[in-house]
Design a protein around this nucleic acid. Structure first.
Lengths: 340, 340
DNA sequence: TGCCACAAGGAAAACGTTTTCCCTTGTTTT
DNA sequence: AAAACAAGGGAAAACGTTTTCCTTGTGGCA
């Protein structure tokens, strides 16, 4: 076996160097009041600096029966918006003196369960589900000592859990209103499988909104094919729409990825096939750079981190944090719908 | 304080239920041979299942003086390629029975140091630097007990460390050869600040390659403006190129993000300004969907995870794992360079 | 003077593991 | 028949903290 030559220093070393007990060192480190004189604090501080001491988490965790780990279980890290939210969460979690552990569940219940169990064994301080899916371990999870926060999608087990996200139904209605205001009355909708509250609410809001405006979507223009991912859902749906006799003047995707996929289909169909306007959800950070013709419902991903930490540190019985969304409009391509 | 009502079970409970000592339970859990009869193993297994027992990491970590955490320090998670590599690493790390902790250093030495110190305190099993930057704590890091792997960028402290990535210099030369083969002899280069080995080698390979082919890049066409990020480096550089009297027939970005930014500048310049062909590095997973005109040097991000774990579990003295790259060619936009 | 409150700090227990010694009981080898 | 060995398993130490007691000294106050 490898012999450890560089042994990082422990609280004992600090205590010895400062000439105090380990209890005092611990108290100085943790800022316990009225337990050490200014002089002692100074000596301990110096010893810590000299030895480059840092509290070993295993010891602390064992004694306190909790760790500084916050588990973030994301449903799909390949989605730039998920990555952006994760990045935002990481900054906020770190700001609270905690450490983020990131996992990708790939929307699979088994993987989510495996992670949940592992994080419970790690005595994670809290669990953040960034797009949860229903699963056995999630249902068993009811220990009040480890707070759970659901982001984007509501708790799929139906319990009243803490939630952070936008009002998806309203966002759907807003898309309909936005379309009406622009005279886009012949809309097609491409959506992901309705397994999450987010998709369900978005679809519901969109359909309701268009119907209420007297422009209900035809059944054949509401598409949700089975496909490996959102990109391909969008791509395959668009291929069907392109083959259709009638042409929509707006294509709505319930995620930007779906819209990306649809855009590709029209691009590959060539310039002789007119491209409809498109709108997606999330407004991925790259849209601004790479998708100049895709409008999108922007979710404030930068604000998620703070909201998550807020919800974790100050848990409330029924906590529904609704963040604001807004539609970011990007123009249609010149020369197709507009006159140049 | 909150009273913990649901106390997860410990090894003692399992031992009691199975009628054995905790030592035996531990040995069964860890599969120590010749230390328990088949019958005993069976009883312990059953007790574990009944109590839904899982080893508490804090106890194990304390005793073994190491944790199951692998720290991955990424320089910029907003880059889809980083996210893809992180996702790949996560799968591989989990496959090795370890847990990934992901941090975003934003290329800042202070943040990297903070993370390094925190991860050392967590007794991380290993540290993966996904784009390292030089920093004091990194230089102090020489404990052979925690392996360090440098991904994409070589160890900036100049030591001979384990490295995983492509041969960037060769990739640069390949780009030059590719351009020559297509008659693209008037190339401009936009690159990030030369703070990493990756950028340095790419730039060096490109310049050498073009010079060797008798088509050296003019000084004014090698751009590297100060900007907040790669996207803006590309954007600002392209603005300058657009203002120039001469027009390059190829623009090379040392990252896809740079190319994205440049593409935006030409797009916003309008159709009357001819857009040059472009090539970037990394071949972000979204290119296929969103950047149909951007060629790119593809790095095999899916292969990184396995390589990282391999390097961590079987450390070798001088370990340079060179992965293969290849140029993914995407066509020029119809009607601009080609006849339609 | 006596009493109390409080600051300062030490000793020791406890947290949940793993692992090193031990011991016992067969079984095989000499 | 003795010696050697293997299998099976328990007792207890050790890992690095935090925190509960406990002790001591000192100043304030009746």
């Amino acid at each position: 076996m490898v012999r450890r030559t560089v042994q990082s220093s422990s609280i004992k070393d600090v205590a010895a160097l400062a000439g105090v007990s380990i209890a005092t060192v611990s108290r100085v480190v943790n800022g316990v009041a009225n337990k050490a004189s200014a002089d002692t604090i100074e000596r301990v501080r110096k010893a810590i600096a000299t030895l480059d001491y840092r509290t070993t988490s295993a010891g602390r965790d064992l004694r306190q029966r909790t760790s500084r780990l916050v588990a973030v279980l994301a449903s799909n890290l390949a989605n730039p918006v998920m990555a952006a939210i994760a990045a935002s969460a990481e900054v906020a979690i770190r700001g609270a003196g905690l450490v983020m552990v990131l996992c990708d569940t790939h929307d699979q219940p088994e993987l989510q369960d495996e992670f949940l169990r592992e994080m419970l064994a790690q005595q994670a301080r809290a669990i953040v589900l960034l797009g949860a899916v229903d699963s056995p371990a999630l249902r068993r999870l009811q220990d009040p000592a480890t707070p759970v926060v659901f982001v984007n999608r509501q708790d799929p087990t139906g319990r009243e859990s803490t939630f952070i996200g936008i009002d998806n139904r309203r966002a759907g209605e807003d898309v309909a209103a936005w379309a009406m205001a622009r005279g886009l009355r012949k809309a097609a909708l491409i959506h992901a499988p309705i397994t999450s509250s987010a998709t369900r609410d978005r679809v519901s809001g969109i359909l309701t909104g268009f119907a209420a405006a007297g422009a209900p979507l035809p059944k054949s223009w509401v598409l949700s094919p089975d496909a490996v991912d959102h990109l391909n859902i969008g791509f395959e749906s668009a291929r069907r729409l392109i083959g259709d006799r009638h042409v929509p003047d707006l294509v709505i995707g319930t995620s930007d990825l779906i819209a990306f996929g649809a855009a590709r289909a029209w691009r590959e169909a060539g310039p002789e096939v007119p491209t409809p306007r498109m709108i997606g959800f999330d407004d991925s950070p790259i849209n601004e750079w790479l998708a100049p013709e895709l409008s999108s419902v922007r979710i404030p991903y930068d604000a998620y981190g703070a909201a998550i930490v807020e919800a974790l540190l100050f848990p409330k019985p029924t906590n529904q944090i609704v963040l604001d969304h807004r539609i970011v409009e990007r123009p249609a391509r010149l020369g197709i719908h507009s006159a140049s």
